[in-house]
Design a protein around this nucleic acid. Structure first.
Length: 475
RNA sequence: GGCGACGUAGCCAAGUGGUUAAGGCAGCGGUCUGCAAAAUCGCUAUCACCAGUUCGAUUCUGGUCGUCGCCUCCA
């Protein structure tokens, strides 16, 4: 199956092909582990996961690398500011490494709950400092970088295609827009960004620090992605994913660093996921990105506490295209939960009734694949799923599980295990159901209803259908 | 101030220069049903507004209004 994927670099959909036949080298910008990830962050990883699964579904082997930013980024612009990990560390009375490990663990647990495949390689920034230093040295050698008494900077004027991805002219940007921003007077251009910070001035007490050719300090906040992606995947990646906010700063910087060092194309497909937007959830939606200071911070755990299945959130994400912002409301997650539940109910029913796959199912297989191939149009793929289900019900031909389980390789909604869990009953319950069948045959409604009630109390719902009595666990 | 995106039914959300504008959720009415549950049928959108291009625009162009994002670490 040939995929067409939207490339931010060209702002168009292109026929996807790998550099090396059959193998996709894919890198995803991972989390900064100084706080919990919210569901907006997680949407990006669901997007990357669907992409990865679609590639695997298409027959590729995917080498997927994700970084863990445990160095901490600065809280404000440019060359000053408090390190986020340091700040959290002081607040919680732990050292930055402990903080980072905690949030990292929670993050990967969230991914697991969302049935997101683990990256082939997870790499921590703090464990790749020598790789970063080597890269900075190379950039210095090649004349892309310069040193001041505060830091080592990348000189963006040495990289002519710096704005190719962002398509924003540097002149138009406001620099030092915020009062607290203090620029290093040694910087040559406002857009120059740090490759290495020296532990001087405001950073004198920075907790995380390493030796380097430029003295004790810590790496800049873009260099890790260049160093680690090239270390594990080579100088040219097939796909690089991230949130759409990275189009203008982080990814151009990564490109400048990598291509500046190698002289080769860094990324062939840049792919960016759109934001989840949300407002004051107590009052309906005002479209606003989720943020810690916005009062709209929803974690996966928040959903779990409200008794939503994490996969209902995944389902909600699948109902919107990855390049379109998705409005999150309690109504929308309710809608997703209902839709997901009825899909699970259907597979449980189909599993019990069974049947051979009829030729008409082929049309839906084709529709699903076509939707997937068209830049991961999951809403359209999900529509094909819904219509497949409706068609099966209408025809009373339930041999559609092979197709649905096949689709689920990409959807990641755990349909097979949901069906198995829902229909798995022990001997005792089975014999009660049979007893009830006999009672119904003799119109002993009192006994039949008593058994229905008894099983209902155990979380087992019975459905009397022309095909016999079906059951499923509702808990 | 600069750049960009978006505005489709009660809610979420696809899509297209021209037969009936996907799908999900919610709602209403009917069928089926011992009960229950499910299923099924029907109903619910002049595609923000204005103008232009066109034989024809929701889809292209321009403008207006509104919303949002980026320009600063942030998915």
């Amino acid at each position: 199956m040939a995929l067409r994927l939207y490339n931010t670099l060209t702002r168009s959909k292109e026929d996807f092909q790998t550099l090396e036949p059959g193998v996709v080298k894919m890198y995803s910008c991972g989390p900064t582990v100084y706080n919990y990830a919210h569901i907006g962050n997680l949407r990006s990883y669901i997007f990357a996961d669907v992409l990865r699964r679609a590639l695997e579904y298409s027959g590729y082997e995917v080498k997927h690398v994700m970084n863990v930013t445990d160095v901490g980024h600065l809280t404000s612009d440019a060359d000053i500011g408090e390190d986020k990990l340091d700040r959290e560390a002081r607040k919680e009375g732990k050292n930055p490494w402990e903080i980072a490990r905690h949030y990292e663990e929670v993050f990967f647990n969230d991914l697991k709950a969302l049935d997101i495949e683990q990256p082939t390689v997870k790499c921590r920034a703090t464990e790749h400092i020598p790789d970063m230093i080597a890269l900075v040295e190379k950039l210095l050698e090649r004349g892309h970088a310069y040193e001041t008494d505060q830091a080592v900077y990348y000189d963006v004027t040495t990289f002519p295609s710096y704005t190719a991805l962002s398509r924003q002219s540097l002149e138009d940007k406001i620099t030092a827009a915020r009062q607290e921003v203090q620029e290093d007077p040694g910087k040559r251009n406002p857009a120059d960004f740090a490759l290495w910070f020296k532990a001087v001035g405001r950073f004198e007490n920075h907790i995380m620090r390493w030796d380097s050719p430029w003295g004790v300090g810590f790496p800049g906040w873009h260099i890790e992605c260049s160093a680690m992606s090239m270390k594990y995947l080579g100088e040219t990646l097939d796909i690089h994913t991230g949130g759409e906010d990275h189009i203008w700063v982080h990814h151009p910087n990564e490109t400048a660093q990598s291509e500046g060092a190698t002289g080769k194309q860094f990324v062939r497909w840049w792919m960016h996921g759109a934001f989840l937007v949300v407002g004051d959830l107590s009052r309906g939606v005002e479209e606003r990105r989720m943020g810690k200071s916005e009062g709209n911070f929803v974690r996966l755990q928040t959903l779990i506490n409200r008794e939503y299945d994490p996969l209902a959130y995944r389902y909600a994400c699948l109902m919107a295209h990855y390049r379109t912002k998705l409005k999150f409301t309690w109504d929308s997650i309710d809608a997703a939960a209902s839709g997901y539940n009825s899909l699970k109910d259907f597979v449980a029913r189909a599993k019990q009734i069974g049947g051979e796959e009829m030729p008409w199912v082929g049309e839906y297989r084709e529709r699903f694949k076509a939707a997937l191939a068209d830049d991961l149009n999951m809403p359209m793929a999900m529509a094909a799923v819904s219509e497949l289900v409706r068609e099966a019900e209408k025809r009373k031909e339930y041999g559609v599980l092979d197709a649905l389980y096949d689709f689920d390789k990409v959807l990641g909604l755990q349909l097979r295990s949901a069906a198995e869990r829902a229909t798995n009953i022990d001997k005792e319950i089975e014999s009660l159901i049979m007893e009830r069948e006999e009672a119904r045959a003799t119109k002993d409604w009192a006994r039949a209803d008593a058994i229905r009630k008894q099983l209902g109390d155990q979380g087992i719902l019975l459905e009397d259908t022309p095909a016999g009595t079906l059951w499923r666990r509702t808990t």
